[in-house]
Design a protein around this nucleic acid. Sequence first.
DNA 1: TACTAAGCTCTTTTT
DNA 2: GAGCTTAGTA
Length: 752
Amino acid sequence: MNHPPYLDKLNEVQRQAAMQINGPVMIIAGAGSGKTRVLTYRIAHIIKQGNDAFNILALTFTNKAAREMKDRIETVVGPEARNIWMGTFHSVFAKILRIEAEKIGYPRDFTIYDTDDAKSLIKTILKEMNLDEKLYKPGLVYNRISNCKNSLITHKEYIKIPELLEADASTGRPLISKIFATYSSRCYKAGAMDFDDLLLNTHKLFKEHIDVLYKYQHKFKFIMVDEYQDTNLCQYMIVKSLASMYENICVVGDDSQSIYSFRGANIQNILNFEKDYPDLKVFKLEHNYRSTANIVNASTSIIANNKERLDKNIYTDNPDGEKIRIFRSPSDNEEGKAIAQSIFEEKHKNQLSNSDFAILYRTNAQSRAFEESLRKHNIKYKVYGGISFYQRKEIKDLLAYLRLVVNPNDEEALKRIINYPARKIGGTTIDKLVVLASENDVTMMEIVKNAHMFSILGSAVAHLRDFNIMISSFQSMLTAKNAYEIAEYVAKQSTLLKTLYEDKTVEGVSKYENIVELLNSIKEFTEDDTSESEKSLAAFLQEIALYTDADKDDDGEEKVTLMTIHSSKGLEFKHVYVVGMEENLFPSQLSLSSRPELEEERRLFYVAITRAEEQLTLSYATSRFKYGNLIPCEPSRFLEEIDPRYLDMSAAMVKREPLFKPKENQNYGTGYGMNVGKTVAKPQASIKVSENFSPSDSNLIREEQVVEHQRFGIGKVLKLEGEGDNRKALIEFEGLGQKTLVLKFAKLMIHP
DNA sequence: TACTAAGCTCTTTTT
DNA sequence: GAGCTTAGTA
């Protein structure tokens, strides 16, 4: 078939998929089959055919993926590419909602509540309703509400569905529907939307305002959805209605990589696509260009254990490459050491850069051991996920001020900063404000503004007035000043900057630096002229509300990547280490009990393996710390599912037994001064084993002494050094090897 | 009202 | 181990 020269870089199937720009298209793209490349050239082709970039909508999974694709299209078609509407579902719909918000009764500058804000609002509601937080766990309630919204069930529909109400009643939580209703109305009054509302309200907007839907149906003549297997019902319905005018819709996905069902993703969306569009054209990309044959074959041997699959046959022309290695370590810390050591060796042996390596794990909490040992080897690394920059307390504090300035009804922001830095508005006063606000059916800020009218507030009135004057002075800057000017002024006038500047502790200094960094990024935002979006404070707040760690620009330095398997989707690395391959961790305990068929966990394993281009290492530990206790671990069942032909059997063997059995859990009690930043050894009544250990009697520890550590278990002191507070002991722990502990901080006891 | 020490509970994954 | 809540004190 003839094709334009700019499509030379595609293979035959890829090219056909790229050139089929009219009508419904589904591309089933196996891992490493060049899916992004096809999407990129398909969009380029649409533009080269004389279509306007304004008429293209491309929904991707991350902002980063969108940005990369945009850049690549730009090199083919030029600056025109900037006009494509491209981004995540959440960011694109937030953009539409900002234009149309008033039609559904929201302010233009609505706030976006993140998960923390949402949970905190739920907590407040529980408190007001006098409900037990242990029964109605805020996280659980939030998940339930979120799941409903993703399935297009609003609080009004919720009470009409007997199954849901019965389920709540049977778990002893009959008031969920009530909480849901209150939560929704509070968000609405606060002019705030949570992540799910961004989708739900877009759906509502299109359903209730046919003229608006019509406008966007016309605008988006070509629609493309990446990672289609991860869309939920709400996203599916929005896309379907937008596409119903031209039906030029192309979805790209891989059922084997569907790993977001907990977020409402429905694998049926991809399996059902054919029913929605009978004249659908299907293209299958089965040629893997990314990985060695060993890796491709091993991944196929694993995913074959799943029953729910679309028929496809992944193959590669790449050489066999190395076999898959398996590491076994006695503990999670040793696992960290082994991996860091391995990276160090491979890097020097094969002249690789740090960025050629990735360490992938199931849960964010696992990053710790690897960070420590990478630091020891002086290997630069970057952790994605976990606590990100924008989740830090000081950052959220300043952002809360800015949110309140833009949207005075934002209650979560108000509660956060009304007394921070301290201005004598304590818990009692805040409780009164909450009650007054709900009694008078207005927002808390309204009460603050009119504090003098409520005698119950007593002496707090004066402080509330000062607070109100300060916020009003910030608000008066909104029209005249840009985002940076306002933010800098707010940081200074709120005394936030001063408070942190005066704090000379290590944490204080780093907090101050973080605030300065945030201010710099706002400055960058206001000065950035490559994008045409507006530069208001509201625009900045909206942009970062949907910003995640994975979107962060690299600072150019070569670093080892540490991330969860979930966030690794779409990425590739020469050498990949999948760590924590243990039963109950991966597959996770929760999915073992709730979904024993483990299909999604297996797809997750598949995703992890197929990130690797040249070398893959799977690693597990035979013991691991949990809540400060050492527990034995068994290797993951997934290790046994790999066809052994692709495994390097010379490495540590897979055996279903731990190297040693730690003692039964003991109650060591607490009381070790667990508060942040301090570790003080203190005698504690609940410790029953022989004599207690405290800083003053570190001279009780002698060489040859048998001691017991709260975390590391039984050990023998080999050597002592240092004086007073610096006194250290080299101790050989059973099964864990040698460790040097500073006696002042060590949680040690002398063993009988 | 603010601060500190002790006590309690928790762990999937993300926009 | 860590964040958060509670109780007790200043």
